[in-house]
Design a protein around this nucleic acid. Structure first.
Lengths: 330, 330
DNA sequence: TTGAAAGCGCTACCAG
DNA sequence: CTGGTAGCGCTTTCAA
């Protein structure tokens, strides 16, 4: 079923059908009605590929995430989509699973789709890829990575500050033996986040000792990291998790091994996903405004302003500590 | 940047470039190499819309879900995508948020994209929509809804049996005052799932009393349902949740109001999402094999067999009870 | 207000 | 093994 068929049955040209379907207000009410009627009868659905090809513009934006199972990413996606829908856009997601090769494939795919904009929310970013996006002329916004320039913007969260707040808070509670449960990062041996932790400890609690364990970004990864920490003989009084998602696993492992949180060990997360509030004990964490990030990303990619191209934009978000039940005096 | 440009610079026809890019093995190694080199230099990314339009086939399947925040749906998506990728397909998701209007939009969108197949995993299905898919000639598989016919298949889980097992189990533990925490359903006043609960009680524990509370499919919805149940004066000895996701909220509310699970009240979920095992107490639930469902859906939509069209397929899955810590004697 | 026709970028068929 | 070319289904001038 195609435009031509509709045109034929409505006894008009394809141009007219196109006008009607696109709400171009120059068609007589009578013809419009006739076209609409035929289209409905025929159950006509415009071929979107043909549309984009002919029109040259896409009306959909892409988003690439590292791990949609982690609510952090899903929340951004949800917010992005809400903004997009509100402005008549669609969004198509890709999940890399932290796999750099998959990231490359996803980016190729998005370029192939000629998306109107692309939000890249991953931690395994390779800098050559941002160059590729630039050459492709696709407006992009990166989360926590790269510089803003050309059609490239970025939104970053001051992870460092967030971790500092956590460390300072734990320090004030008397904690001096800290462990960090991180996740595998493909950005070299020591991830930015792990570094932020080490620096924060060095800076705010220089006498404290620490230990780092990395695992997958998943519930079981959190559990795994906790296991490593607990079997290391280090005996931390607090475990700082790279994010809330993994903290769930850490909490569970602690529970299984008979540790009470926060009496025996304090635990912190990062992100403040909704689940953090629903755990028992509820999780002390650092709030990252995911809804804002999603919304902002869309607004940067598809500026509302009368004129045209997105301006390179640089946003830095300073996260807040949220104290709940999982932390207490050492 | 387009095919023609690549062809020009490689001094070959567009046909040849197309062949090289599609791995049609008739091109001389020399030309192939030259084309590949030029394509790489130019950072050429084939326009997927043009490709689909010209080729007539799509290489991507769609999936529509009610609520991606609920890991149940995300797990199916993940599995579907894994199968798809393994066979060189992409998948594009849409989320309805249980909104029938959004479901309609999503289906229109998928038809417009001319997806090679569509998996519809929603509970707000309107029967007229399946007719639409049929007319569009798109192979589809529905979860828990509609009959199989033509290019339409379905996979269903025997929710009824699952709930029966839960009720029987609780009954054997001595529970006689049961509450059901369901979620809003757009399929009429009484949802299938709620009915399954009521029937199960009537059948397996006729002397038991019961109460039903419905809320949103979310953590806060679960909490809300629990609040309603607890403030009703009914005092159940067990709360059966429509799914694990909501059970998390129920558990939290119970905890906040000072009830110990399972000593004071038993709680059950449904789905057996990974989180169920990580909660404290871990959740007694009914296992739904989401990975299998995702995989199966893809295999039905895009049959591997030499020949062609997907056959109408009807699969019924019988779910198993998984007993954990959240249930105990009444 | 409407129609004719030229593409959009690619695939696939037919020749050579 | 390679090139020419006719579409795929739609949008968008340009004329009428």
């Amino acid at each position: 079923m195609n435009l031509q068929e509709v045109a034929k049955r409505a006894r008009v040209s394809t141009a007219t059908v196109s006008r009607v379907l696109n709400g171009i207000d120059v068609v007589s009410d009578q013809t419009r009605a006739r076209v609409l009627k035929v289209a409905a009868e025929l159950d006509y659905h415009p071929n979107l590929h043909a549309r984009t090809l002919a029109g040259g513009k896409s009306r959909t934006v892409g988003m690439i995430a590292s791990n949609l199972e982690n609510p952090f990413f899903l929340d951004i996606y949800t917010a992005l989509e809400a903004s997009a829908h509100a402005r008549g856009y669609e969004v198509v997601v890709a999940n890399t699973g932290y796999d750099p090769a998959q990231l490359v494939r996803s980016i190729d795919l998005m370029i192939g789709r000629r998306v109107a904009g692309l939000a890249v929310v991953v931690s395994e970013m390779d800098h050559s890829l941002i160059a590729q996006l630039t050459r492709a002329g696709i407006p992009a916004v990166f989360y926590d990575v790269g510089p803003a320039a050309g059609k490239i913007s970025n939104i970053r969260v001051n992870y460092r500050t967030g971790i500092q707040k956590v460390v300072a808070y734990l320090h004030s509670l008397g904690h001096r033996r800290l462990a960090f449960a991180g996740h595998h990062s493909t950005l070299g041996p020591t991830s930015e986040r792990e570094k932020a932790f080490l620096d924060a400890v060095a800076q705010c609690s220089p006498t404290a000792c620490h230990l780092v364990a990395n695992a997958a970004d998943s519930l079981s990864g959190g559990r795994q990291a906790a296991r490593e920490i607990l079997s290391s003989g280090f005996s931390p009084t607090a475990i700082i998790c790279v994010n809330d998602f993994m903290a769930v696993g850490v909490l569970r492992e602690l529970h299984d091994q008979g540790f009470r949180v926060p009496v025996d060990i304090s635990v912190t997360g990062f992100d403040n996903i909704q689940l953090a509030e629903y755990l028992s004990p509820s999780l002390t964490t650092v709030h990252i405004p995911r809804a804002e990030i999603g919304r902002l990303a869309f607004d940067i990619l598809i500026p509302n302003s009368p004129n045209g191209d997105p301006q390179p934009n640089e946003t830095l978000i300073d996260p807040e500590l949220v104290v709940r039940e999982s932390t207490g005096p050492a």
